[in-house]
């Protein structure tokens, strides 16, 4: 088991990433708390040795995505949350960014995941394929389609 210091360091370092992944997967506040507890408890109890920070970060992303999917699949926990409720969460979001977040969240889940991992975390298609356990070509297709869909939703100009 890991020490309290290690766990606190991980909470400081990865909480924002986990929060973003929770938003991507349409979770409400209570479910987000569940995901935080699940992911960090798994980290605290695991004895996985990470080769470097990137490896550790990829582990957190993979575990969070899996936890979110498990929660969504759970029969007792299928609570749908409206888009408005999600958008209220990052309180001081400027109007421009709010539109973009709204456009991203209106896409199907498989597109939201790759958009976040590619555009924010900066992962390449092969890296995303290993995190999500999907074929590389599938990731390329998802990225291309998600880009097109976003362009359509946001009006095209200025969005490559």
């Amino acid at each position: 088991m890991r020490s309290e210091q290690e766990v606190n360091r991980a909470i400081e370092r990865y909480s924002d990433t986990i929060q973003r992944l929770c938003i991507i997967h349409l979770k409400n506040r209570a479910d987000t708390e569940d995901i935080f507890q699940t992911v960090f408890l798994k980290y605290a109890l695991s004895s996985v040795l990470f080769e470097n920070d990137e490896h550790e970060k990829a582990w957190f992303i993979r575990v969070t995505i899996n936890a979110c999917k498990d929660l969504l699949k759970s029969f007792f926990r299928t609570r749908m949350v409206s888009l408005e409720e999600i958008l209220e969460q990052p309180a001081a979001l400027p109007p421009d960014n709010r539109d973009i977040l709204e456009a991203v969240l209106s896409l199907p889940q498989k597109y939201r995941e790759v958009i976040y991992l590619h555009y924010y975390e900066g992962y390449t298609a092969p890296e995303i394929s290993s995190i999500l356990g999907k074929n590389v070509n599938t990731i390329y297709t998802l990225l291309t389609r998600s880009r097109q869909m976003l362009r359509e939703k946001l009006g095209g100009d200025g969005y490559e």
């Binding site: 909470i11 924002d16 973003r20 987000t32 935080f36 960090f40 400027p94 555009y119 490559e160």
Partner: peptide, 23 residues
Amino acid sequence: MNDKLKETFHWIRADEVLKNNTR
């Protein structure tokens, strides 16, 4: 679009209450 998306996601942060509850 890359920068705008990055900026948007950057606004999303975990609040201290959430972190403390987890601890």
